[in-house]
């Protein structure tokens, strides 16, 4: 069973509908015990970092999620669900889960015609092969809506980048955790492909050229 983490962060129906479309059986839950049992976890999110972290903490989901990740459960974070995997977010000056070293920053754009939020379709350029990103080709675009972006410390955690004045990391990966800034559930066929990939992923991944000590 795939669990969609329901921590009151907004419209989760679209994530579930995308799962259904690719034959991935998924249920909403906000129960830490269910998180521990889940075969895989989708961690979506819209809204703000501060309230999301409060909701997670109130329900004991922050601890449960970290434990599940430590135990090897494949986890897919989407948008805010990805952003809170870093250590800190400028949004509401929030300490976040710290699964991946780095921070989340507000876009500071110089070009007057570029708008915030970064909203619409933009190209995702894969930097390191990853089972969940399999099949994404040059020129494939995904749907984005966000005013903040992740800045992971280590390049080995950057799976893909997107250009908005400068390149920013739009997909992150570490061990059995993968997260996207874009919304695969709103990104047409290529987005659905990502859910299909996730449904098949065993949670094993290592960055290229890096050998992890066991």
């Amino acid at each position: 069973m795939t669990l969609i983490l329901d921590y009151d962060a907004g419209n989760l129906g679209s994530v579930k509908r995308a799962c259904t479309e690719v034959g991935l059986k998924a249920e909403f839950s906000a129960d830490p015990a269910a998180v521990a049992q889940a075969e895989r976890i989708i961690f979506p999110g819209v809204g703000a970092a501060g309230s999301a972290m409060r909701s997670l903490a109130e329900r004991g989901l922050d601890v449960a999620l970290k434990r599940a990740i430590a135990n090897g459960t494949p986890v897919l974070g989407i948008c805010l669900g990805m952003q809170v995997s870093l250590e800190y977010s400028e949004e509401n000056d929030t300490q976040t889960l710290g699964l991946i070293a780095g921070r989340v920053q507000r876009f500071q754009l110089n070009h007057p015609e570029l708008k915030i939020p970064h909203m619409g379709w933009n190209e995702v350029r894969v930097q390191q092969p990853h089972p969940v990103l399999a099949g994404i080709e040059a020129g494939d675009e995904f749907y984005f809506v966000h005013g903040y972006y992740p800045k992971p410390t280590a390049p080995e955690h950057v799976l893909a980048v997107t250009d908005y004045e400068d390149d920013f990391a739009c997909a992150l990966g570490k061990d059995n955790y993968v997260g996207t800034q874009f919304h695969p559930e709103k990104s047409g066929r290529v987005g659905l492909r990502l859910f299909e990939n996730f449904a098949k992923w065993d949670g094993v991944w290592q960055p290229e050229g890096v050998i992890h000590a066991q």
């Binding site: 995308a18 259904t20 047409g188 066929r189």
Partner: peptide
Amino acid sequence: VASQVFIP
């Protein structure tokens, strides 16, 4: 529509 159309 939302269950058949995966764009905004």
